[in-house]
Design a protein around this nucleic acid. Structure first.
Length: 550
RNA sequence: UGACCCAUGGUGUAACGGUAGCACUACAGAUUUUGGUUCUGUCUGUUAAGGUUCGAAUCCUUAUGGGUCAACCA
């Protein structure tokens, strides 16, 4: 029996509701605004909302909160749907706040009839000035006392396009002295003569978030409307509108958004990175977007596991990106096939070896069913320049003059001689191999501490490798002591234009993931062509050794 | 100088008045044809002060610290 995992506070609320019969099943929703790409922070919300209805009876809707036509676009709708599906979730209904524009308009009229909303002629600036501050009450608008008839007439004319953008708004009539600033006659509708990605030019007035979100929840009979903590003060208005309209009582619950160090998760900041060309696009592998992580080689399983491990709570947090990396390593270690690639090659000549042969090597030592592959071996091979030292420290297990080392899945070799060019750089290492040490049939009786990856020179396939590092140099780029752009890591991308790869890598497809032995996990990028392979580094292997520790 | 939210190792998260646990990180050791993986072990924590109670991380009070709120954004 698997150990019972403890519930997070939201699961506990739902568990109680179900046990006490408040609900017999639940409905949740994931409500993105289609004005940007989904990022790792959204993944938490997606896993939470969809995860809830996997654990408990009920279903989850995907609802686009598309009430601001000037920032929204179908490009984002498509990317969001792709990302949610890629993460492994399927929604029950695909809905849009714009589906409800007629209903919302009717709700507004209801409020007007009840004397709970009025048309205001004040400008944005005037409204702001009369709003007061958190410690001082606001003042009433001079238009606050208009009659129901006048309000109805004006609002209909707003809808009919008789007024210019910004000329009028519809406001709830609540209390300009309310301690909660959101209750100080919040704007419900504004005029925007803008083309909407779904409703086209049918409307020139659009509801504000507070007059769309809760009502949409109610229309869909969402039982548990889950959002982040900054919406806590909105809950009072959310409840007020539902009460006044006497519609299905959805309820809002808040959890703390997940922050991750060395990156930013704000659509505005991510958009700025894209627009300022600091990255190659929304799906740049350095971006914390779902599409960026996908291109980086992350698996949906690893992201779900990450979201599961960081949990759900109400306190502020800054999650270590190292945990995300742990999760992807854990998964990739199980599924990624092993391949050998030499990044910074130096030639090794085996002076006592003639001809060539094909050697067998396991595809994945963690998974026997992954089988074996054949690798060509010959008299001249490449090894990593950093795997040789002329004057090694004490516990250096790699190649050094007179030292023995195993070539992975091949033979044990001994370094006999070092050849240098005129500048003194090592141009070639001469070794002898031990014929009876062949991998799988070793009768040499020799044991060595180090094993190196290698690639046969005449069979080597050239490829490009893109090495990624954290996008920012500091844990919290949003600390606001400086603009976050100042913290950009100038070395977040390093391109290796020509690495040497084993030939089995020639026949693979974009999205295929591998472990390059002793290097890390890599994925074939979509920029690849059959004549030019491009690999993205997903994450390195955990590195337990550094020269200083030797 | 208002209201609201929050406070458990370096990080994230449990403990629902009854032994502060798990994971990541770090460190040490074993195994290893990847200095990977795997296995074992070690370090580190209830913001503070009062109160209630046989007993408090948990309930109450105050303080302290952090966050949020004054977009015709969501």
């Amino acid at each position: 029996m698997a150990e019972e995992k403890s519930l997070n506070f939201i699961e506990e609320i739902i568990d109680t509701h179900l046990r006490e019969g408040v609900y017999s099943s639940i409905v949740t929703r994931f409500p993105p605004e289609p004005n940007g790409y989904l990022h790792i922070g959204h993944a938490s919300s997606i896993c939470l909302n969809f995860g809830l209805t996997k654990r408990f009876p009920g279903y989850t809707n995907l609802r686009f909160d598309d009430t601001n036509p000037v920032t929204e676009d179908t490009e984002y709708v498509e990317s969001i749907k792709e990302d949610v599906r890629w993460l492994g979730f399927e929604w029950k209904h695909e809905r849009y706040a714009s589906d409800y524009f007629d209903q919302l308009y009717a709700f507004a009229l209801t409020l007007i009839e009840k004397g709970l909303a009025y048309v205001d002629d004040l400008t944005a600036e005037e409204i702001a000035n009369q709003k007061g501050t958190p410690t001082e009450p606001g003042v009433n608008s001079p238009y606050r006392t208009r009659s129901v008839e006048e309000n109805r007439d004006l609002f209909i004319r707003m809808k009919n396009g008789e007024f210019a953008d910004g000329a009028k708004t519809l406001r709830a009539k609540i209390d300009m002295g309310h301690i909660n600033m959101l209750m100080r006659d919040p704007i419900l509708y504004r005029i925007k003569h803008a083309h909407h990605h779904r409703t086209g030019d049918a409307w020139c007035i659009y509801p504000m978030y507070d007059f769309a979100h809760g009502q949409s929840d109610s229309i869909e009979q969402i039982t548990h409307s889950i959002c982040t903590m900054e919406f806590v003060p909105h809950r009072e208005l959310y409840d007020w509108l539902i009460t006044q309209l006497a519609i299905y009582p959805s309820h809002q619950y808040e959890f703390a958004r997940r922050n991750i160090n060395y990156t930013v998760t704000s659509k505005r900041k991510l958009l700025q990175l894209v627009q300022d060309k600091k990255v190659a696009g929304w799906d740049d592998p350095r971006m914390p977007t779902i599409s960026g992580l996908r291109r980086r080689g992350y698996t949906p399983e690893s992201i779900r596991e990450f979201c599961d491990r960081i949990g759900v709570a109400k306190r502020d947090n800054l999650v270590d990106v190292g945990l995300l990396e742990f999760c992807v390593r854990e998964h990739l270690n199980r599924i990624a096939l092993r391949r050998m690639v030499v990044f910074d090659p130096v030639k090794v000549v085996l002076t006592n070896y003639q001809g060539e042969e094909w050697l067998s090597s396991e595809n994945n030592p963690e998974d026997p069913t992954a089988g074996q592959r054949q690798i060509p071996f010959s008299r001249e091979i490449y090894i990593e320049r950093e795997d040789f030292m002329e004057n090694p420290p004490k516990k250096y297990f790699r190649l050094a003059p007179g030292q023995l080392v195993r070539l992975k899945s091949a033979y044990i070799i001994r370094c006999e001689e070092v050849i240098k060019d005129q500048q003194g750089a090592i141009s070639e290492i001469r070794c002898t191999y031990i014929p009876e040490s062949k991998s799988g049939s070793d009768t040499s009786g020799i044991s060595v501490k180090g094993t190196l990856h290698w690639v046969s020179v005449p069979h080597a396939v050239k490829a490009e490798v893109r090495l990624y590092d954290r996008l920012f140099n500091v844990e919290d780029p949003t600390d606001e002591s400086q603009d976050f752009m100042h913290y950009l890591n100038p070395a977040s991308l390093e391109v290796l234009p020509q690495v040497m790869a084993e030939p089995s890598l020639l026949d693979i497809n974009p999205g295929d993931r591998y472990q390059f032995v002793r290097k890390g996990y890599f994925v074939l990028d979509k920029d690849s062509q059959s004549s030019h392979l491009v690999f993205n580094k997903t994450v390195g292997l955990k590195d337990g050794w550094t020269p200083s520790k030797g």
